[in-house]
Amino acid sequence: MEGRDARIKRRTFLQAGLAATAAGYAISCAKSGAGAWRFFTEAEAQTVEAISAQLIPADRDPGAKEAFVVNYVDIQLTRQFKKHQRAYRQGIAALDAACRAKYGKRFVELPPEAQVEALNALEESSPSFFQLVLAHTRQGFYGDPRHGGNRNMASWRMLGLPYPPIRGRQKYSEPKAG
């Protein structure tokens, strides 16, 4: 009896999961086009995207920028990461200020080598903000796409784990009883 219930729930879950994934894409597309961020200003979003692109760069596989990590961070800053809003607002401003002072340009306008240099300096001068952005970038890149990052399951494909939520179940036959 419970087995039948579980199977029905599983099917429901599957459908719900697919719907959620589709919705996730819809959000992603809207955001990447319109630039209507939830928390970030357009300039802040550009900076966070550029930072994330250095933390997890693109190579033969997509990096954090392509996986839309900035979307994950932006969404979570209005939810679970509300308490980090100030850290981001001030941290980004401080980074851009430091870049203007040293290079006369914003972080996003720097060539890649200078961006790496600026991030090394940030890691040194503001370790807690740097670690915060690093942790969020990893979550947005390696974590579940339903939260706004890992677009097209970029990291999961890279690691050879395509479609984890579905494949984990389909690989094995149904339990015989229960």
Binding site: E2, A6, R10, P164, Y172, E174, P175, K176, A177, G178
Partner: peptide, 21 residues
């Protein structure tokens, strides 16, 4: 105990067991 066996998915510790095994 009237429940089925582990289906060996990768979502175990930290998650609800989807089949209550």
């Amino acid at each position: 105990n009237d429940r089925g066996s582990c289906m060996r998915c990768r979502w175990c510790v930290g998650f609800a067991c989807e089949v209550s095994a």
